[in-house]
Design a protein around this nucleic acid. Structure first.
Lengths: 184, 184
DNA sequence: GCTCCCATGTAATCTGTTACATGATTCC
DNA sequence: GGAATCATGTAACAGATTACATGGGAGC
């Protein structure tokens, strides 16, 4: 079985959720997946092309009245097999997130206390916004009737996002407190 | 002030810690920074070259007896300024970690329950190892006398790593429990 | 002599973002 | 007529990994 990159498998997977066009894929990502996976149009369209070339999916153009033509992609049995194959394989390694905030903090002694606290507060705000976003998405998925079969799994990934974000917020608070208490 | 990429700033920062050669930089990263920042030799050496070209640092070759020649880099005032400048600037956005485990779980309905549980257990083990690694690094930094000024900040970043990892482990346990209880 | 560690470096390749180009439709 | 949304696509660039090449010293 030929190996493809993660982007390809991500798109194969999304094609099973009812999203059939490049545009719809991008929307699903921005709505439900963006907390742990992002893809730009610059990847989506070339990858869809590859997927068709590799016969993992077929295309057909839909001409709905009053709407621009969109290309709809349908997984072939070969595409489904490739997806299942990838799903069964264990992941190589837990991801290393590149964190600019932590990188700056690592070199914190070259910074003023005030500047460090500003950065931390800023970061905390961003995390709080993110937490809110997760809660909203959670609400959306729970209430919508579509994709009931997928919903349970999608909620698991959101739970992950919320827990991680909560832990990061707690860390911000704890760190801010400690630094605030330093003698000047 | 000219802008450089993150890799460049990371290296400028590391040069303030007493690490002076490409090899030593790689070691510091693998020992203390790898939980939130990785750099390969393929980036380090070309970036060091750039840093010298831009006059952010100077090089000199050290010929220690019984050891291969190594190139030692020293920040110039211009280099120190560039580093401080970057440190003061707030970060653009909290990072989005790409997580293959979550991506697979997102498409979990195409997988068997057993396979999903295997993946989760595997992931949990990896996280537990990581947690242990963090604790070891923490011990090392706390006990070593070197870099006392940096130590406080380094411990903050480790605390972050531990908290996040702990939250992820908890999530694994909770998710495994839920899936295990499903009726077949 | 072999292996491991120290040490530096480049080239090919892969992956991903950004900016741009195009054009239809809908709503105000 | 203009803005927003739907929709597809490419080219240039940036960022990063991998594999490879090279060579000295230490210890067995």
């Amino acid at each position: 079985m030929k190996k493809y990159n993660h982007t390809t498998y991500a798109i194969l997977g999304i094609l099973t959720t009812g999203c059939r066009s490049g545009y719809a894929i991008k929307q699903l990502i921005d709505n439900s997946l963006k907390h742990f996976w992002k893809i730009s149009y610059g990847q989506i369209y070339p990858t869809l092309k590859l997927i068709v070339e590799e016969e993992l999916a077929t295309v057909r153009s839909s001409a709905q009245e009053g709407k621009p033509v969109r290309k709809e992609y349908y997984l072939t049995p070969k595409g489904e097999e490739a997806l299942r194959d990838w799903l069964e394989k264990p992941i190589e390694q837990a991801p290393v997130e590149r964190n600019e905030m932590l990188l700056k903090l690592f070199f914190g002694r070259h910074q003023s206390k005030e500047s460090t606290l500003l950065h931390l507060n800023d970061y905390k705000k961003k995390l709080e916004n993110r937490y809110q976003t997760y809660s909203s998405i959670e609400q959306m998925i729970s209430t919508h009737e579509q994709n009931q079969q997928d919903a349970t799994y999608w909620l698991f990934t959101l739970d992950y996002g919320k827990r991680i974000t909560k832990a990061a917020i707690d860390w911000c608070e704890s760190t801010i407190k400690q630094i605030s208490n330093w003698e000047d």
